[in-house]
Write a protein that binds this DNA or RNA. Structure first.
Lengths: 338, 338
DNA sequence: CTGTTAGCGCATTCAT
DNA sequence: ATGAATGCGCTAACAG
């Protein structure tokens, strides 16, 4: 059996209340008893049970975090940012990996609720009516990362302006002189990296009066290197070839470049490539990748900061933090050769 | 106020015991009451409080995980593996990032204990007498990843044979014909990636009767790309140059290659490079990296499996899982040119 | 200053 | 089959 406050009290010859008082320094206790008690604590190796404390105070000191996967540096950056703020605010984080499944996510949200999380951060790409319902009824403050919270007024969000960022990236290609520009995009159910970045791409084309071409847009379900490879393969199969391809993320861009290298297509000589995320990969690949930089770590920090703020005030609010992004020009882009 | 079992009981016109019984299906309850209660649960949106349950059952369903950082794919792979097993065993994961500080880690272990974790997994590089003490007295089963647990008989470990793996990598260089082989190694306080891989390097040299050269060994405190860059710079400053360099990890290898490229040294023409980890980077960098593959995800799975096994049996044990590794030959290595 | 007591929310005896 | 009562480990209000 684990040692309880009662064991300590007995050993020190005092009441449990007195033990509690010295451990929490909640009330003055005579020096003599204090010493006896500390000695008993030492000898028994007593550690107060945080579960019992939580039950009394209705404060668990726990925040729940859900991410679809952790292997992607974007998500691990988020987690690291969240964890650092949580830690320095005295909170512990419960991490759940949803694997992109809506059902899993909802189940985790339920678990977070029964486990009395004081705050919840969700960094997910999927969204459903049940999600919406859950966040509406959730008793604790919540922050959603990476996608607007819709009309939810009691939920904070930390995002970047994906549409604008994508628009700027494609505009840069147009300014270089490109007019035949393709895109390897993410899935339609992914609001941020799927839909919004595609919308930004369309914005830039529209602004330059460039009619969009179906054959130059490949839709992928995942954001892995292989998706870039397959997406580029699909686009390359079109009769007329684009001179530039904007990719929904760096991994896709790398995969695209791998396919092009296999086919003997020179980057950026024959085809320019732009990525998104500026993960470490982007600097290391050859040629180094022109891409959109943003800061997942900082995003996690912001999200956790908004959350702790709400937890302190004991009330939910609906702030939106839009983090900066920036086009980083490297060596995978050049004016078209013709 | 949050809704409790009492509210449900009142609303359904029954005692709290009956509500508890239908929710846990612990005893038969008449169909009529059962329906009334379920209705009351629906209407109130009642969720049982897991904290109160934990207090009764002395089971929190929580496992604590400590990693030094999450940004490195090795650690995120571990976490993903652990999380997947924990989840399917009905446990939730509390994640703590220690930032390599011994004090932080010890504090987290204390927190894990007060928070009544049912199991603890530590993937750390540092070690101290206090660590040892903590694991000896810890009431819950523990698994240490990445380093032998010393003489701790009640702690499981999941490791790879770093020394042998490093030995094989360097032996491969020797078989290619190299005799002037350097190493960019990790810090001395890092048992696995620092000391053991260096020991393996020395083993291979010794076996081939190659005297070690101080100038060809660079010691780095971190495992980042910049460390490889600086380490290679240091080694390149030696009067006589090596023809091959074994690196303690892939990032270091990439950094080394970046320096060499800047200096116009061809890889593998003038100098061969071997990495360690086989992270995604290794396939993508040019030239692609010869490296030692192992499986962090699988390691996390093994660790979590050993942990859940112990938690089920309610007793600690001292198993050791040694996971496989494998040299993957790519394009960064070749016979020496002379 | 110190001890006794009443819960925190729930599961589980023990009665009925 | 159901309800009342006890207690998990601890804190806080109440007495002394």
């Amino acid at each position: 059996m684990s040692v309880t406050i009662r064991d300590v009290a007995k050993r020190a010859g005092v009441s449990i209340a007195t033990v509690s008082r010295v451990l929490n320094q909640s009330k003055p206790v005579s020096e003599s008893l204090r010493k006896k008690i500390m000695k008993a604590v030492e000898e028994t190796g007593y550690r107060p049970n945080a579960v019992a404390r939580s039950l009394i105070h209705k404060r668990t000191g726990l925040v729940g975090v859900i991410i679809p996967e952790i292997y992607n540096p974007y998500f691990s950056g988020l987690v690291q940012g969240i964890e650092s703020i949580a830690q320095q605010s005295g909170y512990s984080v419960m991490l759940a990996v949803s694997g992109k499944s809506v059902e899993q996510e909802l189940e985790m949200l339920q678990i977070f609720q029964t486990r009395q999380m004081e705050g919840v951060i969700l960094a997910s790409s999927r969204w459903s009516r049940e999600h919406r319902r859950w966040f509406t009824q959730a008793p604790m403050p919540c922050v959603i990362i990476g996608r607007p919270a819709g009309s939810l007024s009691s939920v904070c969000t930390a995002i970047i302006d994906n549409r604008k960022a994508a628009y700027e990236a494609v505009r840069y290609l147009i300014q270089l002189g490109h007019r035949r520009i393709g895109m390897i995009r993410g899935p339609k159910w992914d609001r941020a990296s799927g839909e919004e970045r595609y919308a930004g791409y369309r914005d830039a084309l529209r602004e330059a009066d460039i009619p969009p071409r179906r054959q130059w847009v490949a839709v992928r379900e995942e954001f892995q290197v292989i998706d870039g490879y397959q997406g580029m393969k699909q686009i390359a199969a079109a009769k007329e070839k684009p001179t530039a391809v904007f990719c929904a993320c760096d991994r896709i861009a790398v995969g695209a470049m791998q396919y092009l290298e296999e086919q003997g297509v020179s980057v950026p000589g024959d085809l320019s490539i732009v990525g998104f995320d500026d993960e470490e990969l982007a600097r290391i690949v050859t040629p180094s990748l022109t891409t959109v930089r943003h800061q997942p770590f900082e995003m996690g920090v912001q999200a956790a900061t908004m959350l702790t703020e709400q937890m302190l005030n004991q009330q939910k609010m609906g702030k939106e933090a839009v983090l900066p992004h920036q086009l980083v020009v490297r060596n995978s882009t050049a004016p078209p050769s013709e």
